[in-house]
Amino acid sequence: MTPTRKKRLLIVLAIVGGMGVAAALILTAFEKNLMYFYSPSEVAAGAAPHERKFRVGGLVVNGSVKRVPDSLTIEFAITDTAHEMTVAYTGILPDLFREGQGIVAHGQTRPDGIFEASEVLAKHDENYMPPEVASALADAKAGAMQANPQ
């Protein structure tokens, strides 16, 4: 092998090796940061992970919003019409957070079963329904129809 060829081979190997390492790192980071979405029914059925963060979504149940006095902690229930679950959040809620509104929350389930949200999202449009929430509602409805066929 001539020196030039050897040099070229080394460069090619370095590039291929570098790309491999980069791809592995990227895919690891990707896998670690994927957040799955679960509807309240799926959470009730125990399908959601316990060790990992995930997203839930549903309609804020009317009359369920409770403030913990002298703090910014708030507790509320969300529903996909079939099941409800309790969400706790400390901080400032988005402008369009209201009872009856569709919201999405990121967070983790606490040992006591309450979902501790690190972020609550409500889109900036009163007609907007987060797509995940819309499909969770549709699924719950379809489930109910199957359960009591008329």
Binding site: A22, L25, I26, A29, F30, K32, N33, L34, M35, Y36, F37, K53, R55, H106, E132, S135
Partner: peptide, 18 residues
């Protein structure tokens, strides 16, 4: 195949690495 989202940490980590 399911509803997922990719969190900002993915972008932050990978983007800084590049």
């Amino acid at each position: 195949l399911g509803k997922i989202s990719v969190g900002p940490p993915y972008f932050n980590v990978v983007f800084s690495a590049v």
